[in-house]
Design a protein around this nucleic acid. Structure first.
Length: 317
DNA sequence: TGGGAAAACCGCCAGG
DNA sequence: AACCTGGCGGTTTTCC
């Protein structure tokens, strides 16, 4: 769903990931681009125009609705679009927003009571204009089941590939990502942001159960033998299945989940590193510091400090 | 930061 | 024949 004046990039992400024919991957998406008033739409900056052939009836037709951006923050979209989005959500369609598209979904009341992502520059504004909506400015995207939102432009790619993974499995997502010469998922390393881990629809039950258990009990020991038992598999087979689902080994995955939790606690609380280590399943603060440094190239306390500073800047501007 | 015990990882292979 | 499973053991990684 695009406004009369649209951003080429956001629309382009949706087109690239979902609309390009991919005969080698079997059944693919049928995509319709629509606007409140079908006809000529201008690219932002006026460098070219596009012909939009569908009106809001396409929203009623779709199983998945992508809103790549808002027309403006003051008036995110035409009333007819907002109404159609509300209808689509009501009947159970999957609603997706990129960047400022979250403002449009919010206007339709779809984000009420949810935690969502949007461009960091507008996160505060979204939270202010829609008090029912919780905004998390620190993630690339948030998968809320039937409602998925993503942050600034680049995150649209991450969310789109995530959806691909949900629909068609990790292999297909990797294939498309490789074609676009983009890492299939960003994590650790340089990236300061992270996605929420969600198993595919076709994840083996045992692995799913083990992941759920692990997510709930990150502060426990969590040996691989234990997890394998919960999945009713041998340790050997469990690691194999686990890798197919998550792309990493169980220990690596657990470690990463713990580090995510550590980062949250560093950002949101004043607990000591010692204390955080205890409640996140690290046996000692020393171990935590080592792992943290390797993953994020800083120490926990330095991370907390720089996070506070950049948060302060954001408030100031 | 270093060292060493313990755990995890993974190729390989036999059996279902 | 094609596939999945689980054990073995050598190597790597973790963590105190």
């Amino acid at each position: 769903v695009v406004p009369a004046e649209f951003s080429p990039f956001e629309l382009g992400v949706a087109a690239e990931v979902f609309a390009l024919p991919r005969p080698e991957l079997g059944e693919w998406y049928e995509v319709r681009v629509c606007a409140a008033c079908p006809g000529i739409a201008r690219a932002r900056g006026g460098i070219f125009t596009a012909s939009i052939s569908h009106g809001v009836e396409a929203i009623d037709w779709a199983e998945t609705v992508i809103v790549p951006e808002a027309a403006t923050l003051d008036d995110p979209a035409d009333d007819v679009v907002v109404a159609a989005l509300a209808r689509a959500h009501e009947r159970g369609a999957r609603m997706v927003s990129y960047c400022t598209g979250a403002f449009v979904l919010a206007a339709a009341g779809i984000l009420d009571g949810r935690t969502v992502a949007t461009h960091w520059r507008h996160a505060a504004r979204l939270a202010r204009d829609y008090p029912q909506v919780t905004v998390d400015p620190n993630v690339l995207y948030i998968d809320g089941g039937k409602v998925l939102t993503s942050a600034g432009s680049g995150a649209a790619i991450d969310l789109s590939l995530h959806i691909l993974r949900q629909d068609h499995g990790a292999r297909v997502a990797r294939h498309v990502a490789r074609g676009m010469v983009i890492p299939p998922h960003r994590d650790g390393g340089q990236a300061q942001f992270v996605m929420s881990p969600v198993p595919d629809a076709d994840t083996p039950d045992g692995v799913r159960a083990a992941i759920e258990y692990a997510t709930e009990h990150l502060d426990d020991g969590l040996s691989i033998a234990d997890l394998a038992a919960r999945a009713f598999m041998s340790p050997r087979n469990f690691s194999r299945r686990f890798r197919e689902v998550t792309g990493t080994t169980p220990k690596q995955w657990i470690l990463f989940q713990r580090l995510i939790r550590v980062r949250e606690l560093l950002e949101e609380t004043e607990h000591s590193v010692e204390h955080i280590a205890r409640v996140t399943g690290f046996g000692s603060a020393v171990t935590l510091r080592q792992r943290f440094a390797r993953a994020f190239c800083t120490s926990p306390s330095a991370y907390r400090k720089s996070f506070r500073e950049s948060a302060a800047e954001r408030v100031a501007s």
